[in-house]
Design a protein around this nucleic acid. Structure first.
Lengths: 200, 200
DNA sequence: CCTTATTGTGAACACCGTTCAAAATAAACA
DNA sequence: TGTTTATTTTGAACGGTGTTCACAATAAGG
């Protein structure tokens, strides 16, 4: 026992975080556990704790990767569009698309609550800010006269609203008769909000 | 042991569910446990399982009460307003108010996911539908020419958007510089959305 | 070759939700 | 009344969780 394995800490980190997303592709987050993860990568639970600090921080690290994935996809999709309106629409639909394709992974990103002493590393903040900047740019090109603080606020409103639609949609909590498509809800949201935003 | 206690099942249910909301006023849902609850009300864990079926169903019962509280408050506040626009605004702000005042209770209402075989009783559906009907009425009075399905969709869009703002606000995940008030975000959302809705 | 650092472990701990035979009480009946 | 039956409630046990830590096994340095 305690035989040295052939992985550097970086490789093991890679292995574990990949396994987290693997598992979340098949089952919800509450089926995940440190012990299962440890078994899956061939190490003991304690080793993973030594590596990440705690199970909560392990999840935090996996969430950081998820955020990276999302922000990459959103940035990519926005650059393929020319008009500000289309950029916003495609950003929102790409966000929905990710939530639908990786529901467990997406849910744990928001349902995992930080513990005392944990906080988001600053490189994540910069990624997030870059996304919001892109939204703000679209908004101010649609209405150049809007104040900076109004634009800042509007970017948060739009993202939170889109987020709410995605969250309730994948949890099937929209309580809608028949099929109300999340796609058309997002379109409705943006069309109506931006219509007024552009006029003002 | 197995001494008979002086509570009818109904009284014990009352006791337990009150204790859940008590505890959630002080600490987040992941600090809650069947064993703590049992100790708090002076019964054994097994007794609570006999009563509710499982811990998950116990939480479900507590969530049902929360939903009742919320729908009561929202219905009340909408009736105090005359104009459709003010009704919608007060509904949204009351929703935010509840989330802010009972964050743990509010969070578990949406973060507790149903297990196989559980589902929402129909009396809850009717409460929810009643609320949505009120929203739809406001919307169709603001724009009588909108089709029924568009109005149905818009009511879901508005609720989901408001929900998203509340959720990210109480989790402090809006990534806003300085203080962006949730109040004014909701106002911004409704003002812009309804402006366009009324015109269309 | 010996010593020191590093790496990984397994057993133990304190919790968790859940099951279930048995015990204690109440209700029904003789 | 005494006796049987039904109802409550429990405590112990089970398999699970994240976490700690002394110790064993390996690698690296002198």
């Amino acid at each position: 026992m305690a035989r040295r394995k052939d992985h550097t800490p970086e490789q093991l980190t890679e292995l574990v975080l990949a396994e987290v997303h693997n598992a979340l592709a098949l089952e919800p987050a509450d089926q995940l556990s440190l012990r299962k993860l440890a078994k899956a990568v061939g190490y003991s639970p304690g080793t993973l704790i030594n590596l990440f600090g705690s199970y909560s921080k392990l999840i935090l690290a996996a969430n950081a990767r998820t955020l990276d994935q999302i922000s990459q996809q959103l940035a990519d999709v926005m650059e393929t569009q020319d008009s500000a309106e289309q950029k916003l629409k495609h950003f929102a639909l790409a966000y929905l698309d990710f939530a639908q394709q990786h529901p467990h992974q997406w849910r744990i990103l928001f349902e995992h609550h930080l513990e005392e002493g944990e906080d988001i590393p600053q490189w994540q903040w910069s990624r997030i800010n870059r996304l919001f900047s892109m939204i703000e740019n679209c908004l101010s090109s649609l209405n150049p006269e809007a104040s900076e603080s109004k634009t800042h606020e509007a970017s948060r409103v739009i993202w939170a609203a889109v987020h709410g639609i995605c969250a309730l949609h994948i949890d099937d909590k929209l309580f809608a008769q028949k099929e109300v498509e999340a796609n058309s809800m997002i379109t409705s949201l943006l069309d109506h909000y931006l219509c007024s935003w552009t006029q003002a």
